[in-house]
């Protein structure tokens, strides 16, 4: 997927969880990504954040710490 589209999708998720009460928004964003994003999408996401996270909402960058890095499996 294009980086722009991925960033936009992650930012949309962050926008929702930002509005939620509590102080665990990064964890909840990460939980959503872990539950619904396929491993390759998460790998692309984590790499993007590692490379500076251009365009990412700061909340998305904070969530990245909680996103499960996909186990590299011998396909």
């Amino acid at each position: 997927m294009s980086p722009e589209k991925m960033v936009m999708m992650a930012n949309q998720i962050a926008t929702f969880f930002r509005s939620q009460p509590g102080d665990d928004q990064p964890e909840r964003i990460a939980e959503h990504l872990n539950d619904f994003w396929a491993p390759r999408m998460r790998a692309q996401f984590l790499a993007h954040v590692r490379d500076g996270g251009q365009g990412c909402d700061p909340l998305v960058v904070r969530a990245a710490a909680h996103v499960r890095a996909p186990v590299v499996r011998a396909d």
Binding site: M1, S2, F36, A38, P39, R40, M41, P70
Partner: peptide
């Protein structure tokens, strides 16, 4: 145990060649 691709993700992944 990992979630798979949704339809739009499949199409994006196809365009990317994966």
């Amino acid at each position: 145990p990992e979630p798979g691709l949704r339809i739009p993700n499949m199409l994006d992944a196809a365009v990317m060649g994966t």
